[in-house]
Amino acid sequence: MNRYLSQYRENEEHILGWGFIVLFLLAWELTPHLVALPKGLALFFTTPYHIALKLFDMVTSGEVAFHFYVSGSEFVIGLGLSILVALPLGLVMGRFYTLNAMFDPFVTAFNATPRLVFLPLVVLWFGFGIWSTVVIVFIGALFPLLINTYEGVKNVDRVLVNVVRSFGANEWQLMKIVVLPNSMPYIIAGLRLAIGRAILGVVVGEFFGSDQGVGFLMAEAAGNYIVDVVFAGLILFMGISLVMTMAVKKLEDRLSRWRPEQVKTF
């Protein structure tokens, strides 16, 4: 008995965490068996079992592969573009005061506003399809990266700048040896936010502005009240989101070997 108890103590966090999820799924599964749902609701009700079956079916039949490929491409292109734009722009904004003061109102406004607001306009300009979603992903991911890069550059340690300059470093060496490494943790934190926003961008972009991709699949299913597919899509996105977050965490760990343990995540 005691041995089990101590084993439980050791793994309490995981047992409780998984336990709750299992319990939740079970309760959901059993609901239609225990309660008589009102007719309107019963029509749209599904259970985890059906969702899992549908997801399995969609994956094995290859139905989802094409849409997944589309969504993935939009994500990669949009995020890639935002990195290409945000890093140089953030570096420049962090180094030049006037430029930063001029850009600031635009950055604040676009960062505060949900990207969705621009969607009708983006669809008008880029047409119904992949590119509208790419643009939405791009706008969404751009600002967290831009702001964090800029903050990282601005918060560079004055002492370190002096140290490196005292050894006769030029502006470019200063950038490479101090400014960029110093901004790295900020950039990674920005990347983490950007990934979340990019995934959201894929969903809303495809929901309202595309005729392909997993988000479109969900929107179409929702329009036809095929609830299983909506939830299956949700789970797919959830999975991607978790995988990407873990990947960034790995990257962060790799790049921050030099930092003391307690400040690694912020």
């Binding site: 966090e13 709750f20 959201l200 969903v203 809303v204 899509g233 989101s241």
Partner: peptide, 18 residues
């Protein structure tokens, strides 16, 4: 312990889709 993983998963999923 009990709620964190569950809520994190929900937070990570694009609930707008609902």
């Amino acid at each position: 312990f009990a709620l964190d993983p569950f809520l994190t998963a929900l937070y990570a999923s694009p609930l707008v889709a609902l």
